[in-house]
Design a protein around this nucleic acid. Structure first.
Ligand SMILES: NC(=O)c1ccc[n+]([C@@H]2O[C@H](COP(=O)([O-])OP(=O)(O)OC[C@H]3O[C@@H](n4cnc5c(N)ncnc54)[C@H](O)[C@@H]3O)[C@@H](O)[C@H]2O)c1
Ligand SMILES: NC(=O)c1ccc[n+]([C@@H]2O[C@H](COP(=O)([O-])OP(=O)(O)OC[C@H]3O[C@@H](n4cnc5c(N)ncnc54)[C@H](O)[C@@H]3O)[C@@H](O)[C@H]2O)c1
Lengths: 225, 225
DNA sequence: GCCACCTTGTGATCATTTTCTCTAAGTCTG
DNA sequence: CAGACTTAGAGAAAATGATCACAAGGTGGC
């Protein structure tokens, strides 16, 4: 059910667009103007046919015999992914991981701006991390409204994650990135993605056992739930 | 090309086994002895038929009319994922993220033990993080051999990640969890999994644009590269 | 022991994703 | 300007994964 045009972009494609985007960005300084699907595929670590199929969902703006105009392609992907706008983010749970994320200057670079931090621990509230003051998690609703937060990052212990998610959803947040290990129940229309260390390690463990089967694991975040 | 039996476990199934494992673990204290595919599916946030299909790849040890014996199922999944053995891990790049990972007591719990830390910054070398002394990255080969490292976690800047990976592969490491954003080229038989914040956020951004399409994003780590 | 009830395991079907192949469209050289 | 060459785009086929539907097997009540 696409918002504007008739084309529907497959989930698998969506999860690869950021990779292409990154690779293209890395090629903007090099004087290159165009890039072929072959080269892009090589840099992104995927199959060239896949690149062409993926990009064809965005429209047909490659030039046969030449390739894709890098600037234009960047612009199109950015538009499709919504990277042309600003997404204010909040991080909930400023422990080991939350603090590292807050200090991470690197995704703030491209539209994702951490605008608030929240924690339940009163001894942490008021402390400054990465120039932001940690606020009490009881104020979460207020914070989200004040800052027009659209994306929330949960880095609390697993036991608290559902509560926090409920509050966030209540406050109108529509996208959640969850670092706690459990599953989150959210209403339709709210997107959740999970990053789970333990899962990743366990998958590696599996392939370690079956070593030499040529299966390279595979990058994250791609598949359907 | 499975190691022992004739059954081959699909990649998609492998990436769900850790979820089942976690859910089952959370149900060991509750006095419950068995669990039905329905209940397990609900707790893991997937379809019941999928649970049964997945588990059927491990063999048929459910009891019709009753469900699966929790202890036995845990044991079987652990065996399949190789969680019955110890996997010594090294973390390379002890910055914001690397330090958070090193301090994280939680995956050390189940077979994954961080046994060494390495960094290129000489001012960090010798410091202690989580009771481990940071060693120079130039010693990486020695460290891997000394500690019999099988899984490496890369948390260096992206620019260094390929170099580090090459060294690790050289030293015989067969599984890499990469937090840097780029792609890693590794020989066949080495598994790489990637955790990329920027990618996750960008995917969320996409679904934020197309809001209300009923697509919940979907959990990570499932899909093929 | 028979019967009503549950729940697994699996063959069949459907959907999605990946890959292959080939054509059409363009560039570049001479 | 013609011909060689490069590369996107699209249709078809193959592979993989999700879901359905139901028979087979097992439990517990009586
Ligand atoms: N640290 C890591 O490397 C790592 C890796 C993978 C997963 N995780 C997961 O990320 C989460 C956080 O890990 P961590 O190591 O940072 O833990 P942590 O204990 O260091 O931090 C958790 C923080 O959440 C806060 N908190 C607790 N309840 C809260 C609530 N209801 N609302 C807001 N804040 C609350 C705590 O005060 C604390 O500051 C855990 O679920 C963990 O499993 C962490
Ligand atoms: N911090 C985060 O929340 C976060 C989130 C997502 C992704 N990342 C990625 O994780 C990586 C690390 O992020 P960070 O915030 O910890 O960065 P950081 O700069 O804090 O830490 C990087 C560490 O790597 C060390 N290092 C540099 N070159 C090295 C080499 N050749 N060998 C060994 N160590 C080396 C540095 O000395 C430093 O200690 C980056 O690639 C970043 O993009 C970080």
């Amino acid at each position: 059910m696409p918002t504007e045009s008739g084309r529907r972009i497959p989930e698998a494609t969506v999860s690869r667009l950021p990779q292409y985007y990154r690779v293209l960005l890395e090629n903007t300084g090099t004087g290159l103007v165009t890039i072929s699907s072959d080269r892009l595929a090589e840099l992104a670590g995927v199959n060239a046919a896949k690149v062409r199929k993926d990009l064809s969902y965005l429209g047909s703006f490659g030039t046969r015999g030449v390739g894709y105009d890098i600037e234009y392609l960047l612009h199109e992907i950015a538009r499709e992914l919504g990277l042309t706008q600003d997404w204010p983010c909040v991080i909930v749970g400023i422990g080991n991981l939350g603090a590292a994320l807050a200090n991470y200057r690197g995704f703030g670079a491209r539209g994702f701006r951490v605008v608030a931090l929240a924690d339940a621990d009163s001894s942490k509230v008021g402390q400054k991390v990465a120039d932001l003051e940690i606020e009490p998690v009881t104020e979460l609703t207020t914070i989200c409204e004040r800052e027009k937060v659209t994306i929330a990052i949960i880095a609390t212990p697993q036991s608290e994650s559902q509560n926090v998610a409920d509050t966030l959803v209540e406050a109108g947040v529509k996208s959640i990135l969850n670092f706690a290990s459990g599953m989150l129940s959210v209403p339709d229309g709210v997107a959740v993605r999970k990053v789970d260390l333990a899962t990743e390690l366990q998958i590696l463990s599996f392939y370690q056992l079956r070593n030499g089967n040529g299966n390279n694991g595979s990058a994250n975040g791609t598949g359907p739930s």
